[in-house]
Amino acid sequence: MKIVLTGLTLLLALSGIGACVHSAVYTSNVEEKYPPIGSMVDVNGKPVHVIEAGEASAPPVLMIHGASANAREFTFTLAPLLQDDFRVLMADRPGHGYSGRPEASETLEVQAAQMAGVLRQLAPEQKAVIVGHSYGGAVALRLALDNPDLVSGVVLLAPVTHDWGGGGETWYNKIAGPPVIGPIFSQLVPLVAPSMVKSGIDGVFDPKDAPDGYYSDAAVGLLFRPPSFRANADDMNVLQDELAAQQDRYPELSMPVVLFSGARDTVIDPKLHAGKIKHQVGGFELVKLPDTGHMPHHHHGDEIADVIRRLAARNDDQSS
């Protein structure tokens, strides 16, 4: 019996070592394939990776990506539509893409503080239009709440804005989050997740089709590096509590807020999030997209770009 137990222990140890080696190789390969394509901005002692498009002298637009993503999400969608008129700043959130992760980065406060630091360094004494997709919408709102001096308007794309009352958490985020089992589980992720997520991307875009080459263009593979996967899990595991603490502050928002909501969204409940915030913000505008799901910027980019231009022009009028 002792020999059997010793053999099992050795087998488990070898399996663990194998998983660690595989994850290290995966990380090296995926970072070689999708290297940082922006610059590093030091904010609160941690680097924030910022991809830029457009002229540095143009009015700023800051784009904040959602969960399981990185700043490349906007490089082939909204940025090309705006770069002739704006300085488009696309930032990796803490622990995602190539941004460092300060302490307590699972909180919306710290997430927003890192984004605010980017604006204060790259666009000082200017107000920016803030664009947030999904989880990034919650960060965009917190940025506007905590730093209204930096924000001329907010554009929300299928955002999560309110506590949804429990449930809906994914099993893999629950496992990846805890301090003991989480790091072990995250080492196994590169073994299976990349092939699984490729087949599941269509569900996020449903009822539209995912763009050809989306997995590569958005560098989705960066998510499955163990530290990034755990960062994403930590963000999601506390999101409901974070939103419950934030949602009562929305009446403080004095700038215009425009929300693009896909009626066929299966990732979040648009009636819950859009339906609640529209009663809390004075300068609120809801754009309903009847045949769109959770990725409106891929199929309604021109409409979103027009709204960004309108909010920026409004800020120019008020400043002159």
Rank of each mutant, 00 (worst) to 15 (best):
A123I: 08
K127P: 08
A128C: 09
V129T: 13
V129H: 02
I130F: 00
H133E: 10
S134M: 04
Y135L: 15
G136K: 05
A138T: 10
V139N: 05
L141E: 13
L143V: 04
L143C: 08
A144V: 08
L145V: 13
D146Q: 13
D146I: 11
V151G: 04
V151H: 02
S152R: 03
V155N: 07
L156G: 04
L156S: 04
L157A: 05
V160D: 02
T161A: 15
H162V: 15
D163I: 06
W164I: 09
W164N: 09
G165Y: 11
G166T: 12
G167I: 12
E169M: 12
E169R: 11
Y172H: 14
N173I: 04
N173D: 15
K174N: 12
I175K: 05
A176C: 07
G177K: 09
P178D: 11
I181S: 10
G182R: 00
I184M: 07
I184Q: 00
S186K: 02
V189E: 05
V189K: 00
V189I: 15
V192Q: 01
V192W: 15
S195Y: 12
V197Q: 05
V197C: 01
I201M: 10
D206S: 15
D209M: 11
P211W: 01
D212E: 15
D212H: 06
Y215T: 04
S216F: 09
S216L: 09
D217Q: 13
A218E: 06
A218M: 08
A219H: 00
G221Q: 06
F224E: 06
P226L: 07
P227T: 00
F229Y: 11
A231Q: 05
N232S: 14
N232C: 14
A233I: 08
D234W: 07
D234M: 13
D235F: 09
L239G: 03
Q240M: 14
D241H: 06
E242V: 03
E242R: 01
E242K: 00
A245I: 09
Q246G: 05
